[in-house]
Simulated assay, not measured.
Amino acid sequence: MPAAPKPNDHRPRVAAERRERMRSRLIESAMVVFADKGVGASVIPEVKAEAGVSQGSFYNYFRTNEDLLAAVGDELSGEMVQLIESVVGDISDPALRVATGMRCYLHLARSHRLLARFLAGAGLRLLAQQNAAFRYLPADLEEGQKRGDFADVPLNIVLDMIAGAGLVAIDHMARGRTPKDYPDKIVAAILRSLGVTVDDATRLTGVPLPRLSPASDSLLARAQARAAAQAPTDA
């Protein structure tokens, strides 16, 4: 029978912290590889090489591509929700909440090319996994419909339309440069398709947004820094 840990034995805590660091490194590496290779590729060999771990160590944490994708998606969407909620949390007008939330989401993708590339490839799969970034949208849309801000269209149709337009916009931003106001124009067009007038769509998308800066220890910031460090430099 193994001896019980001594009261001052820090080894279990140190081991747990080491495991968590390794898992975080694998998720960070997976985001970089998925953004580069796409989510349909078999990325496990590249992720192991990127993270600098052995095959045995890798399989202590993840078994499949889908496991990796789900882990990256969960952590990223949680971070994005936290950033977006810091902006929209105190907004009482549902139409303004919807517009501001969508603008924040797209501006994050535009300002973080790695995020845009990852979402462009993984978007539909992440949506199928109940992406946390869309968690609050149905309630806000329903409240806006009750107030007469939006047309009375079935919510599942509205959500599909928003997701489709958003993913096409993200793919566009992942592939090349776009004007600074591109996310705002996309959201204004989406609002118009929801029955919002031109004047109201312009007003709702003209509200200044704060700069959305992920924390330095966030997955998004870590993966972006790793990708930047690997990018070729001009001679």
Rank of each mutant, 00 (worst) to 15 (best):
P138K: 11
A120I: 03
P45A: 04
R226I: 00
R147W: 03
R110T: 00
F118Q: 01
V33M: 10
A169H: 12
L127M: 09
A139K: 14
V158R: 14
A132W: 05
H10N: 07
A139E: 15
V198H: 12
V198I: 10
A169T: 11
V198E: 15
A165I: 11
F62A: 02
E142N: 06
D36P: 02
A215S: 12
D149A: 05
H107F: 00
L167E: 13
G56K: 04
L204Y: 13
S42D: 14
Y182W: 11
S218H: 09
V72T: 07
A215Q: 13
A139H: 08
R11N: 07
G40L: 06
P154Y: 08
N65K: 15
I157H: 11
R113C: 00
G89E: 06
Q55S: 12
P2S: 09
D74Y: 10
R19S: 04
A109L: 03
P7I: 04
P12G: 06
L108S: 03
R177N: 10
V81M: 09
N60D: 09
V198S: 06
S42K: 11
A4V: 02
G144N: 10
A133Y: 13
D36N: 05
G176D: 13
A99S: 15
A221K: 06
D234L: 07
Y59F: 13
D200L: 08
Y105Q: 10
R103S: 07
L209C: 05
V43A: 00
A99T: 10
E20P: 01
A221S: 15
G40R: 15
G206Q: 11
V47I: 07
R192Q: 06
N156C: 00
Q130G: 09
L194F: 08
M1V: 02
A95F: 01
L83I: 07
A169K: 14
H112V: 02
G164L: 05
P7G: 06
V88I: 14
A165V: 08
Q145C: 01
R21D: 10
R226V: 01
A122F: 10
V32F: 00
N65Q: 14
A139P: 04
F150T: 03
V88E: 14
R103D: 05
G121K: 07
L115C: 04
G121P: 15
A163W: 10
G101Y: 06
S54M: 03
L96E: 15
A3I: 00
T205Q: 08
R113T: 06
N60V: 01
S86G: 13
G195C: 05
D93E: 14
A132G: 08
V198C: 00
P7R: 12
P45Q: 06
L26R: 06
R97H: 02
S57L: 08
P214N: 04
